[in-house]
């Protein structure tokens, strides 16, 4: 089937999509957007987190056909290498990235958290990121990164 969706603000199309394949596969293999990572394909790790109509979801659990006509934002839509989003910059500055496999999902989940709540405490951060697993960094620096991004967004700490 053909899938047409708004991805990172552009209309994108993919042909010959198998209806049972995941949105994650469509994004990575057919639309040239490998930012969202494929790690578990069962909703456990969150490395494939994208916005679907403004709501963070695991792209590995969305059937391609369910994304038809929807609005999708991936990590590529939040910032570019030349112009990082403040959340991305904070992850780098706080040392919250090692292999980086979990990072795209964490960036999207953190972006969503800080949009809803500009001043989360550590417990709220843990709760909001409970669907994102990291195998390398450990969560201390990730929470530091979220706090850093939050304080910068509140204008308390300029990069």
């Amino acid at each position: 089937m053909r899938i047409t969706a708004h991805v990172n603000g552009e209309v994108k199309q993919a042909d010959d999509v198998w209806p049972g394949e995941s949105l994650l596969h469509v994004l990575r293999e057919r639309m040239g957007l490998p930012g969202s990572k494929n790690a578990c394909e069962q909703g456990e790790c969150g490395s494939c987190t994208v916005y679907l109509d403004g709501v963070p979801v695991c792209a590995c659990l969305v059937a391609a056909g369910q994304a038809e006509g929807r609005e999708i934002v991936t990590v590529e839509g939040l910032g570019t290498p030349e112009d990082l989003h403040p959340v991305q910059q904070a992850f780098l500055d706080a040392g919250a990235v090692q292999c980086g496999f979990c990072t795209p999902g964490l960036i999207v989940a953190t972006h969503d958290l800080l949009t809803r709540d500009p001043g989360p405490d550590d417990a709220e951060i843990r709760e909001a990121l409970a669907g994102n697993l990291c195998r390398c960094t450990g969560y201390v620096k990730i929470i530091d990164a979220v706090q850093l991004a939050a304080s910068r967004q509140r204008g308390e700490d300029r990069p």
Partner: peptide, 24 residues
């Protein structure tokens, strides 16, 4: 039937199920 897909897609991703029709 597929709604949130949080059960169905796991089965599809792991080839545990190959239905002829998915009903979104």
């Amino acid at each position: 039937p597929i709604c949130g897909g949080t059960d169905v897609m796991v089965e599809l991703n792991f080839d545990r199920r190959r239905p002829d029709h998915l009903l979104d």
